[in-house]
Design a protein around this nucleic acid. Structure first.
Lengths: 241, 241
DNA sequence: GCCAAGGGTTAACAATGTTTAACAGGCTTC
DNA sequence: GAAGCCTGTTAAACATTGTTAACCCTTGGC
C-alpha cells in the first residue's frame, strides 16, 4: 500500500511541526501549511488522501477552508482540530462533511488511531469498483499492468514507459470525455505546475504518435481545460446542419 | 497472556524504585537500571517488551540510549520520561522512533494507562495475520524460509542468497502492485541511499534472470518510484468499460 | 595463517526515461 | 488583428535504470 498523503493546515508553528514530524515518522507523507490560503493553494496543486485542518486560524478559518476544498473535491476526508468541543462548531463541521473531530489537547496516539480509522473507511470506498487496467482503444489493446500497447491491425506490440502508460490509462478511463489537465497532473506528476504541464504536452505528442495508425482515434485538446481521447465509429457520418 | 517485561532506566533512585514496585504490583516484570550504560548492557542481554527511559541522565542520556537500543532492535516500543514537554526533545525523540512521552510530574495511573495502550498496540501488530513465507509465483514455488526457488516446469531448484530472497519476498507480497524503491531499501538495506539503490538494481537483474523461464512473469520498473512484479494470465482479453 | 568460495557492494558504461528549452503555431479577447 | 497566453513538436540536457565485471569482505577448510 502506497504512502498516504496528508495535508495539515495549522497556524501554530510548534504544534504543526511536531505533528508533521510525528506523522512522517509513522509512515505518512505530510505537507504542512501555516494558513488557510496557502493550504487551499497547496490542495489545488497536489493530491491528498486526507486533510487535517485547525479550526481557529487567521486569514481563513478551518471551516471556510474546508468549504473551499469541498468545491474542488467532494470526497476527500477532512478532519478538524478544535480547541474545545463546541456544539455549534460540530454542527457546522458536519454540514460541510467532516469525517472526524479531535479536541485539543489530544495525544499523538489518539490522533494516529483516528487517522487510521478514516483511512480504513475511505479505502473500503475505493475497493468497491476496481478500476480496469486493460482497455480496447480503437484497433489497439492496451494493458496498463504490463505497459504494452498492441496494434491488432499490424500485430505489433509497443512497450510504453510508465508515464506514457499512466497518461494513456487516464485518457482511456475518460474516453470521449475531457480529462482535466490539472487532474492528470496531480495524479501522475503529483504537482500541477508549469513545467509538469509542458512535460505532459510532450507525452500527449508521444501518445498521438503511438495511436496514429488508427485514424478513428484522436487526442484532441480542450483549450485551457485538458485533453479528450475520442474514438469515432466507422459507419457513423454525422450530418452537418 | 504472559507477563510483560519492562526495562526501566532512571537515575533518580527514589523515583526509580517507586516506579518499579508499582509496575511489579501491576503485573509487570520490571528491571531497573540506574544509568544508560548498564541499561544498554541489560537490554542487549535480556528480552524486553517495553523500554522506559528517563531523558535527563548522567553518563548517557535517554535519547542516546534509545538510539543505541534501536541499533539492535528496531521494533521494541520505547517510552520517554521528560522533565517538561520540550519541543526539541519531542522532535528528537520522534525521529528515533519513540512510541510515547510522559511528562513529569505524572500520575502512576496515567503511566499505567499509557503502558497498556502501547502493549495493546504492539500486540495488535503481532496478532495481525502473519506474513506468508511461501509463495507461488508463476511456474515457480518460492520458499522464503529455506531461500529456495523451485521451477515446477523444469523441476529444478535454485538456492537464493538472503538479499535475493528478501527482495523477491517483498515483490511477491506486492505482486501486481508497485513496490516502492525506498520502502524496499529501508526494509532490506536499512538505509535508502544512492549506493544501496544501485545494489538493489543489481539484485533486480539477478531476480529477472531467475524468473526468465516463465514468460508470464515480469519485473517492470516504475520510473523514479520502484518495481512491480507482474504475473499475466495466459489469455489476454481486454475489458470494455 | 593462507586460500578458495560465496555473498555483497562498487564501478563503469550502455540504454532508457523524463524534463527542460526553444521555437512555431493556435485560440481568445479586446 | 495584435497581444498574450495556451499548445504542438523537436531536440538537447539531465536523471534513472540495466548489466556486467571487478572488487571487497567474510567464512570455512586445510
Amino acid at each position: 500500500m502506497k504512502e498516504a498523503r496528508i495535508l495539515l493546515v495549522e497556524d501554530d508553528q510548534n504544534l504543526g511541526q511536531i505533528l508533521k514530524e510525528y506523522l512522517d515518522v509513522k509512515g505518512f507523507s505530510t505537507t504542512l501549511c501555516r494558513d488557510g490560503r496557502t493550504g487551499l493553494k497547496t490542495f489545488k496543486s497536489e493530491l491528498f488522501d486526507l486533510c487535517i485542518f485547525d479550526v481557529m486560524m487567521p486569514i481563513m478559518d478551518g471551516f471556510t477552508l474546508a468549504e473551499e476544498v469541498r468545491k474542488s473535491d467532494k470526497d476527500v476526508p477532512i478532519m478538524f482540530l478544535t480547541a474545545k468541543s463546541m456544539k455549534e462548531d460540530t454542527i457546522k463541521g458536519l454540514k460541510i462533511g467532516a469525517d472526524d473531530y479531535i479536541t485539543k489537547p489530544f495525544s499523538m496516539e489518539e490522533l494516529l488511531l483516528r487517522i487510521r480509522a478514516i483511512m480504513r473507511r475511505s479505502q473500503r470506498g475505493e475497493n468497491a469498483p476496481p478500476e480496469p487496467t486493460k482497455f480496447k482503444i480503437g484497433q489497439f489493446n492496451f494493458d496498463y499492468d504490463t505497459q504494452v500497447l498492441k496494434d491488432n491491425a499490424e500485430g505489433s506490440e509497443m512497450k510504453l514507459t510508465s508515464k506514457e502508460a499512466e497518461l494513456l490509462r487516464m485518457l482511456a478511463l475518460n474516453k470521449n470525455q475531457t480529462l482535466e489537465r490539472s487532474k492528470a497532473l496531480k495524479q501522475i506528476w503529483h504537482d500541477d505546475n508549469y513545467f509538469n504541464s509542458r512535460s505532459m504536452d510532450v507525452y500527449i505528442t508521444k501518445l498521438r504518435k503511438y495511436l496514429k495508425n488508427d485514424e478513428h482515434l484522436q487526442i484532441i485538446n480542450v483549450h485551457g481545460t485538458g485533453f479528450k481521447l475520442i474514438e469515432t465509429s466507422n459507419e457513423t457520418e454525422p450530418a452537418q446542419p
